[in-house]
Design a protein around this nucleic acid. Sequence first.
RNA 1: GCCCGGGUGGUGGAAUGGUUUACACACAGGACUUAAAAUCCUGCGGGCCUAAACAGCCCUUGCCGGUUCGAGUCCGGCCCCGGGCACCA
Length: 767
Amino acid sequence: MQSHYDPQTIELKWQKFWEDQKLFAAKEDSKKEKYYCLEMLPYPSGRIHMGHVRNYTIGDVVARFKRMQGLNVLHPMGWDAFGLPAENAAIKNKIHPAKWTYENIDTMRTQLKRMGFSYDWEREFATCDPEYYRWEQFLFIKMFEKGLAYRKEKLLNWCEGCQTVLANEQVEQGKCWRCSTPVMQKPMEQWFFKITDYAEELLKDIDGKLQGWPERVRTMQKEWIGKSEGASIRFKIENVESAIEVFTTRPDTLYGVTFMSLACEHPLLMKLAKMGGREKEVRKFVEKTLKMERMKRLTGEYEKEGEFTGSYCLHPVTGEKLPVYAANFVLMDYGTGAVMAVPAHDERDFAFAKKYKLPIKEMEPDLNAIDIIEKQGVGNKTIQFKLKDWCLSRQRYWGAPIPILYCDACGTVPVPEKDLPVKLPIDVPFTGEGGSPLSKDKNFMDVKCPSCGKKARRETDTMDTFVESSWYLLRYCSPKYEKGMVDPKAVHYWMPINQYIGGIEHAVGHLIYCRFFTKVMRDLGMIKLDEPVKNLLTQGMVCLGGSAMSKSKGNVVDPDEIINHYGADTARIFILFAAPPEKDLEWNDEAVEGMYRFLNRVWRLVVETKQSSAEMKNEEADRWKNKTIKRVTEDIEKFQFNTALSGLMEYLNSGAVDLETFVILLSPFAPHLAEELWERLGHKKSLLLEPWPKWDEKMLVASTMTIVVQVNGKLRGEMELPVNADEEAIKKQALGLEKVKSYVGDRQIVKMIYVSKKLVNIVVRDS
RNA sequence: GCCCGGGUGGUGGAAUGGUUUACACACAGGACUUAAAAUCCUGCGGGCCUAAACAGCCCUUGCCGGUUCGAGUCCGGCCCCGGGCACCA
């Protein structure tokens, strides 16, 4: 047995031991309380980075801690394996996306195992596995049948040069990333999930059921859903049987309306311009606006302008004539694309009115206006959401195929369930040009229509990878289940997730989509669950030199370097100690060294002294032990791993260490070292089977206490007294202190404050 | 503009209204060593006083005020940093 701390040897030894013993395999057991601890699954980009290390170390501490507390812990890991980078690698390096992905998974799995994370590897899956995405296709069909998956037109980034659709990240300064052709907006039929049907419930449950989520994330989701209550009101157009419908949150300002503003894309705009004899001017304005919009709409800063259509609409109550304008600040994709302008109450309308010399009508808001409108049948109360339906189709190869066929006779036909999965063909050409590689695969494309038997063709779009990550958390409960997406019994036992841990960047994307999917699956009768995640922790970034570690900035520290140099335990401890989990963490090589030194001190203490707890029985040692158990336990529960480790350091420095207790308390943080030391202390069974220690409140109290003495709130002395000293005696002794006397002098003592077992404050007044 | 966080030593960071600066890093001095590394010990917010040390005093949690016997912590106002939302009708 080596006498110095050699992390390389002991870490591999214990990793193998854990794997052989299958100590992290989770089994349903209705007699045991369960705990589902999950970290967001990684995209297999190539190698593990420090962000992963941080995320998964936090999760691992929680999982190991809960396991030792006797809970039945589910702690799985898998791979978010579809996505654009694999396809880019295919185009660039002539390597198949599947090969690239699976090789990366192998590398990263090895790296995760080297960190000693306590995953149930038997539940591992990659989302690009047809056995996984078949169920996603199954769900898609169910959603299609319920009208929750539908098609509509949407503008997409289109490169004429490559004849292909580009993702936003493939557009660089308005140009194609590959061929630099200017990117145009082209309307195309896309698949959408009707998440807006669930807007109200998604919003309501934030307050009702997500109490365990950070306030920050809850607020972001509320803003994303963006509910506003108001009214929709129809304004008749003068001389025609047609009306402009507006949405307003202020129907009470209806009598202040002096004109109407329409978005450039509004379907009635050109008709009104033609009628008003201002077609040319309006067309020019629209063209100018749409061109400018592309550049500036993202930044938002531009002059508010408009153009008169020459036409008028009529006020629904007073019948007044109101000029209709095209305006560049009105958005077609919010509300109705038309705004009733109330310059007296809206800053923007006011500025617009000034600019175009439109009337400004002062008035008192009238809360009855909405009732009048409803009575007259020209409008009604409505609710608007900012949340938009989820566009899930991608014109990419490396994704789950959308299980739809197009038949000339029958139209859009879902693939029958028995024909699932629609497998992604492997042998296809990757050029990056001419649309999806799938469209060039005849075997894939040509199918028979399942309802009429005639020739049909397949949908070539694949699904957004957020679809896979929206239900993987449920699939982990029964990863090999073959009769459906999930085994209801397993889901009933394991869900909801007790603790979910991941980056804040998923606050509105992933974390809303997985809530949506849970509700959809519930409504399809697959599960009985409203919300998938009970408690959420969002960890901060890992930075170096003040900014997030990233390949493009060249400021990355490779976890393997740290593991090879100091071992996984040091990496884990450093990342936990350097900052509380929610905050960004600044990498510091010297501090890593410091953590390594700490583990070495622990090693030497245990290996060299080997004193057992029985030999160290005195009051001081007992107090330290109980104090530390309490502190570490409570700090882990609050995710304050940095202070939990401080507690262990202080305990180590105290010189009154109970070795067994110390090693157990250290084990969630530095599990390999802890197992090794546990064994060296003479234990035959794994430390993992050891229950988490409990503390005794009675043992926390010392026989003496330190009382701080203040005069007028300022520290003037200290006294060491037996804990049972009574208040009167303490006050008397405080007054007797030389230093206190000199501060009190002959001044009048107004009162004395005694804070039990802590301090005495003598309040004096100049006489 | 609106809504959240946050501002504490040279640095990362601790502090149920009760000794500000735990723990660690860095730095400095010392011990051990032929020497170095490792290890161990000591010191380490600022200022005043002092030849220096000891002792002592004063100040200090972004700034200004308030509440309180007592404020990093609570309240009001302001400044700065970070994040989210934002022509949303």
